[in-house]
Every structure is written in structure tokens, then in C-alpha cells.
Amino acid sequence: MTITEQGPHSTPGGTSEKRGMNLTLRVWRQKDPSVKGKMVTYKVTDISPDMSFLEMLDVLNEQLIMQGDDPVAFDHDCREGICGMCGLMINGEAHGPQQTTTCQLHMRSFEDGDSIDIEPWRASPFPVIKDLAVDRRAFDRIIQAGGYISVPTGTAPEAHSTPVPKKDSDAAFDAATCIGCGACVAACPNGSSMLFTAAKVTHLGLMPQGQPERNDRVVNMVAQQDLEGFGGCTNIGECSHACPKGISMETISRLNHDLLGALRAGARPKS
């Protein structure tokens, strides 16, 4: 991260907006899932280093709309790094050169005159909808397979009836911060969703509330990710490195551990 050590560029009353970066973008354009796509080159000028990457794309799109061209489709919503909706492959790295979400990547991470390649996540379970937007609902189906605790509304016991050791609760929280962005899949050379699945298995598996369904959860979620067509994990570690929430490789080990235990205990995927 580039943090300026000197004071903020403060000019009360006036604007001191720094602008002036010119960039060459090569963007993946694909009209819909049925047609082939290709990289198309665009130029954007007068980009401020304080813009977020998506604001830079907004500038491009306003240009394209005014020219009567089709603007580049890309997913985004919260623009503050928490909803997990955004996600682009930027110069070959998921979410770009910093370990953050695409919406929180700022143009000061680039240099004037840079050329930037922008592609969608690539994995067959994430089909392209248009341009840079992909369908990530395979993740929801992995959750459907067991990423929950069955507790119908109104049946819960008093919250303090089950104390949870702080250490476990904190570790569960770390895993639970996964935002489902899919960068792990995008970065993994195998196109594996292991980190995503492992984060949920770890979160719920560390809580006492998650114990009754622990075995079934892990076998079903793992079976589902295979069924969706994700690759298998061979412990390469690109995923964790690309993960904007820093989900650790330890979660994968934990999933494997749970799976072994579950299979030994006789748990099998629901059919």
C-alpha cells in the first residue's frame, strides 16, 4: 500500500484533486454466455490516483455510453469491500496487485502509462453472464448443501446457556469473514473452491452450536463443490494469497481433518 507520510493535500476552500494518469486497458468483452469473447483495448485519460479501480471503470463506461457503445458490464454493489459482489482479474491477479477487493483497490497502485488487462473470473462453475460479470451461484448451492445450523426461528435457547471459549469464537469469526467473492477460485490453478468451502466448514465447526451437523455438513459440502465442477485442491496456496479477507490455509487442513473424521464415522453425502 502506498501511504503518503506527509500531510493530506489540504487546500481548504479549493480543490486540489490530482488527476492526470493515462492508461491503456485491455478488457474482456463478451456479449453473453453463448458467444465467444475477446480482449478489446481502450484508453482512459485523466485518471486520479485517488479513484478506486471501479470508479476508473465508471469513467470508461460514461465515455462508452456517450459514444453510443455498450458499456463494460461488471459486478459491484457495496463498494466498501464487504458484499463480495465485485471481483476482476487484473493483470493476472485476482482483485489486482493488493490483497483487497477490487472496489477497494485504488489507482495509486498503478503508474501513469500502465497497460492493464482486465478479465472475468474463469471457472466453468462461474459462467460469464456478460463481459466481466459472472454467475457465482454455485457458492450458494454449496451453502445449501450444509453451510448452516438447523435452528428454526423461535426454538433457540437462552444465548448464555452455551458459553463459547473466546479463542474458538475468535477463530470462527476469522473464518466467517469470507465474503464469497470467488477470488480463491479465480486464483487457484485448479479452479478449486476449497478455501470458500473450508471457511464455512471451519466457522461452523468451531462453534459448539455447529457440532450436531458437523459430519454431514462437511461430506455434503465437499460433494457439492465437486458436483458443481470446481477443481480439486492440491494445496497450492494461491487462493489464500488472493483472498481479500485473508482466509488462511489452515481452514483447508481443518476441512480435510473433519472430512476424514466424518467418513470414518460413516457419514455419506445425502442422496
Binding site: M89, S124, G191, G231, E238, H241
Partner: peptide, 19 residues
């Protein structure tokens, strides 16, 4: 083979960071 099926279309540009 599963990995190949999972990513039939490869990236135009791909960097490895941790690998």
C-alpha cells in the same frame, strides 16, 4: 482432468503469486 474441466478457458494474463 477435474482441474482442466474446471477451467476450460484459461486467462489471457495470469500471474502466480504464492505458488
Amino acid at each position: 482432468r477435474q482441474a482442466k474441466r474446471a477451467r476450460p478457458q484459461s486467462y489471457v494474463t495470469k500471474k502466480s503469486v504464492a505458488q
